[in-house]
Simulated scan of single mutants.
Amino acid sequence: MKIFVINPGSTSTKVALFEGTQCLWTETQRYDAAELEPFASVTDQESFRYDRIAQILKDKGVEPSSFAAVVGRGGLLKPIPGGTYRVGARMLEDLKSMAYGSHASNLGAALAVRFAAAAGDVPAFIVDPVVVDELADEARVSGLPEIPRISIFHALNQKAVARRAAAELGKPVSECRLVVAHMGGGISVGAHCGGRVIDVNNGLNGEGPMSPERSGSLPVGGLVSFCFSGRHTLAEVQKMICGRGGLVAHLGTNDLREVEKRVAAGDEKARLVFDALCLQIAKEIGGSATVLKGQVDAIVLTGGLAYSDRLCEAVTARVSFIARVMRYPGEDEMQALADGALRVLENREPALDYE
């Protein structure tokens, strides 16, 4: 069964063709600012991106009629449980209206539907979008009722590596208790209980560890004073929290490899910030272990930062007393999307409807 995968990013679209679990080929199409400038919104780019993807298929001699399904990256929708979702009219309406936010991933479902139609009305899916919400009720409560905690995290990769870890442990994911730390440009650490993420930090909006580009949790009193100092606008503060925080704020780079080079060269400030990053990740993992009452089958390190031996060794040294530490570097989104569609096609799990 051939599955066509579409993953739109802000300045690129990745596409891939899978046969079962095997990737036959993948391509990344990049767009410069001038190409995207005429479009007033992300959703206006749909036909432009469709035509460019169609040209890739034509160049490769691939007929859409060979597809068993098409799967797109999930966008900003209302909170939903994890799983593989059929793309339907309600989902497309919410994505096109940007009711829950604007992001290039909002195009994934619309593009999947169009290529599914070209394939002869095969199913179109999305899998585990960032808005997956399986939080326990008590995990939603913050110290202010006006500001509840919300679930936004790297659901696609966290769910995928949880399944890999479960397979390696020889247990179904429905019987596993895992702490999964996705460590990339943003960092999210989830407590996985029986296949559901019952607690997770919202790394996008300032919870949890700092990361290469995000501030993570900040001293609340200091943040309030900072916001009301009159020196910064709301937009500027939001950018400091997400985009210009973390390693960028301290060291002027979001590249952990550059930071490690500075540490190796004897840069004490770089060493201090690196050690703080590792400490904060370990603390978040430890906190998630308490959500699972200390009954943890494994701690899983994943994402781009998991390629760093130095970081993973430092984190492992602090958390290995809790449980076995497993490591799956990177975030293979295309494989995870294809696998989600394949599970439905092979009747290993049901397709869900967005209602």
Rank of each mutant, 00 (worst) to 15 (best):
A118L: 15
A119K: 09
G120I: 15
G120L: 15
D121N: 06
D121Y: 01
D121Q: 04
V122W: 08
V122Y: 03
P123H: 07
P123I: 11
P123W: 14
A124L: 06
A124E: 11
A124N: 12
F125I: 09
I126R: 09
D128H: 05
D128Y: 03
P129D: 10
V130W: 05
V131L: 11
D133H: 09
D133K: 10
E134Q: 02
L135M: 15
L135Y: 03
A136F: 00
V141C: 08
V141P: 10
V141I: 15
S142T: 15
G143R: 03
G143T: 09
G143L: 01
G143C: 05
G143W: 11
L144A: 14
L144F: 14
E146V: 15
E146W: 09
E146L: 13
E146D: 15
I147P: 00
P148E: 04
P148I: 12
P148S: 04
R149I: 15
R149Y: 15
I152T: 11
F153Q: 13
F153W: 12
F153M: 14
H154C: 06
A155D: 07
N157W: 07
N157S: 13
V161K: 07
V161R: 01
R163I: 05
R164M: 07
A167G: 08
A167K: 15
A167L: 11
E168V: 11
E168F: 04
L169M: 12
L169Y: 10
G170D: 07
G170C: 14
G170E: 13
K171R: 14
K171N: 04
P172V: 06
P172E: 08
E175N: 08
C176L: 13
R177N: 13
R177D: 05
L178H: 08
L178A: 08
V179W: 05
H182N: 13
H182Y: 12
G185L: 02
G185C: 06
G185Q: 12
G186P: 00
G186R: 04
I187G: 05
S188I: 11
V189E: 12
V189N: 06
V189C: 10
V189Y: 05
G190L: 07
A191E: 00
H192L: 04
C193A: 11
R196V: 00
I198S: 12
I198N: 09
G203H: 13
G203S: 14
L204G: 11
L204M: 11
L204R: 01
N205Y: 02
G206E: 10
E207D: 13
G208E: 08
M210N: 10
P212F: 04
E213I: 09
R214S: 07
S215Q: 04
S215C: 05
G216H: 03
S217Y: 02
S217H: 01
L218M: 14
L218H: 04
P219S: 04
P219E: 08
P219T: 03
V220R: 03
G221R: 12
S225A: 05
S225P: 02
